[in-house]
Design a protein around this nucleic acid. Sequence first.
DNA 1: GCGCTACTATTGATCGAGCAAGCAATCTAC
DNA 2: GTAGATTGCTTGCTCGATCAATAGTAGCGC
Lengths: 158, 158
Amino acid sequence: MRRQALITQASEQRTFTSLLRAHASVTRRLSAQLLVEHGLTLSDYEVLLRLSRAPERRLRRVDLAEQVVLSASGITRLLDGLEASGLVERAACDSDRRVVYAVLTDAGLEKLEEASRSHVAQVAELFADRYDAAELAELETLLERLAEPGAPECEPAG
Amino acid sequence: MRRQALITQASEQRTFTSLLRAHASVTRRLSAQLLVEHGLTLSDYEVLLRLSRAPERRLRRVDLAEQVVLSASGITRLLDGLEASGLVERAACDSDRRVVYAVLTDAGLEKLEEASRSHVAQVAELFADRYDAAELAELETLLERLAEPGAPECEPAG
DNA sequence: GCGCTACTATTGATCGAGCAAGCAATCTAC
DNA sequence: GTAGATTGCTTGCTCGATCAATAGTAGCGC
């Protein structure tokens, strides 16, 4: 009798797997809708949204990257597209000539509002079908903890 | 005074955003580690793991795709790589000549066990740093609900 | 001022993954 | 038993995102 060499499936692993599955399922659905209805990626949408909430509707590219968990080059590429569509503009920074702001244009804001109308409804439906208010809040706080950097490896003691 | 046109940020939206952020943060870290240490994608690993737990270490490609939330072509491409590395083999099905099984080879099982040693520890650490057992279980059940298909749009009434 | 290091952003190459289309095998209905 | 629909899988094309390398600034010590 052949003993199956089972890889340990601790609680952490199972949770991680459900995170992968949940993310894949949800984003596939929502990004497909967003793409066919408005020609926007989920990341595009997230970027427009962040910009719309930023002071003066502008953010440094580096900060934008951090907020949407994208690499620096990823943000450059993504903004290339949004700039080509006229949804975002670039603006120089007076005090530091290295930085280039991404600024949401009026057209970008309009596009965001247009896309939001259906997207927000779809997100709301997807989650409302599955959770009550308490569960939703609980899930949010639990997930937020995951995005935090966690215990640093060699932090200065002071 | 300019009124900021704020997009509604309902509870569902915030939860969705934290899902995106949590997934991006966690997978970036873990997939980078898995890649440099073992040359495997997270999806590669998931596929090897699923195969290792399947009866006779084999699964139809279509079922594999469903389990790891990948498209049919995605699975074909992914398995191409694993086959080239000798970690997975293909096997025909006697009763239905359309189906091609993906079979985990001995080398594949070894590779999985090797990769698991560090990967499992990394996952465990990442989650153990942030949650206690109850929270972990709670998060898992909440996430699992998200992967479910949800209310169908026009189910036959019977 | 000069050199060193750190930071911001862009570019080139590469890769994973999806959709659409297509082929082959199977099943259903007549 | 043959036509048409369905299922399982693969291929061509495209796109989003990453890493590595590069250039331009900024700030620091001296």
